[in-house]
Design a protein around this nucleic acid. Structure first.
Lengths: 231, 231
DNA sequence: GTCTATATAATGATAGAC
DNA sequence: GTCTATCATTATATAGAC
């Protein structure tokens, strides 16, 4: 295993004040949203609100620091995951470790829910990454090609975060704030895998009707005819 | 056609103060989120902030009134849509009318993003409705059955709202706040229909691996065997 | 009923002692 | 560097004139 420590605790015995505040902020922002006060974060970190301002300068600067840390850590984690080949066993093995990244995923989800430029950057980068992985799968023959790969990658990203968002709203979800991540994956994995493996509609009449209604993809740029058309 | 007027303007020539404020609040809440101030809503409605408070009592009460109105209107709209049989032509015909409901959909999306009990109620009801429609499709043979219908209905709802959420974040989306709804549908319909009609993975090894990993659905309560099973 | 003016509470941010 | 105490702003909400 490449990385045993939790991504939230770079030094278990002692963290710098800056790192401790940042970890508390990621946790709070992810759990309660960005409207949470600096005093709450300061309390969680065991310092005063004035110290938070001294260290980071402003609440916005604190958020930017959280963004940068989450962005970098998630990126490294994804690289680690992709070192393993895409066999189903490895896929399931990674699932068991995802709880370590629960605060990070919660932060990203909150950022997307909040909207704004921070979220747009997160999303654009994740969509770009997903496009690469999906292209590899298409080339390897494990993934069905799409008429608009970018739109599909974006849709799948939206499905992932939308499922997490709605799972957090299910009856009795607010009671246990620590549980979320793995439980949400488990409740989401089955329908997602079913949909991806077995589909949803039994025939293509809806898709064909739409393709006739809009012959070429409504994307702004290019790719009007993917190479896989055979009619 | 059952309802030609926009659902936001019950009386084009003159609205009551209460209805005018409520319409402005739905628009603002949906566009900018619930952190928007009462002053902004009052300005949009052409009244003072004090009048808003006089009429509704509090900002929370205003939001509750908006919730109730949106909930009721969306419910009526869905019933109108379902009067038509589920043919692809009717489906596409309804798409052309969805822009009328853009403020309502925007409000619901914001409510879900915001979280809390309001959103939970919206979602639970929509999932329950989706369960019915999907059950009809499964019975009619147009929809593939699932091992956990409720989890799938919830996942599909999450995919819809997640796609809308991410579409609002795409590069250059904030510039034209009025465009959103139909454009988002168009950019989302193709990958959604592809996924539902043609699937995503070319074989079932991932799904089978998951089913071996977790043989029975991880739902908390009941419905291990819905009555529509025929085995 | 609608307004102006104000009360009250919470926020981000700053000053200055230690 | 960290704290207590405070400022300035903004939010919801209220009081009272017209």
């Amino acid at each position: 295993m490449v990385n045993m420590r939790s991504p939230m605790a770079p030094e278990p015995h002692e963290l710098s004040t800056r790192a401790r505040i940042r970890a508390a902020a990621i946790e709070r922002f992810g759990r309660d949203g960005f409207a949470v006060g600096v005093r709450q974060i300061a309390d969680d970190a065991g310092v005063s609100a004035a110290s938070v301002m001294k260290v980071f300068g402003s609440k916005e600067a604190l958020r930017v620091a959280c963004d940068a840390y989450v962005f970098r850590t998630v990126r490294e984690a994804k690289r680690d995951v992709l070192v393993e080949p895409g066999a189903p066993g490895a896929f399931l093995g990674q699932l068991a470790r995802i709880d370590e990244y629960r605060p990070l995923v919660g932060y990203v989800l909150r950022s997307i829910q909040d909207g704004g430029p921070h979220a747009a950057e997160f999303v654009d980068h994740m969509v770009a990454d997903a496009l690469e992985y999906i292209a590899d799968g298409v080339a390897a023959g494990t993934i069905v090609p799409s008429r608009d790969e970018e739109a599909r990658a974006r849709y799948l990203m939206g499905a992932v975060f939308g499922a997490l968002m709605l799972d957090a709203l299910r009856p009795g979800a607010a009671a246990d704030p620590g549980e979320r991540m793995l439980g949400a994956i488990e409740r989401t994995a089955l329908p997602a895998l079913e949909l991806m493996s077995e589909g949803f509609l039994t025939d293509r009449s809806m898709l064909d009707a739409y393709l006739e209604y809009v012959p070429d993809p409504p994307v702004e740029g290019d790719t009007p005819e993917p190479s896989l058309h055979s009619d």
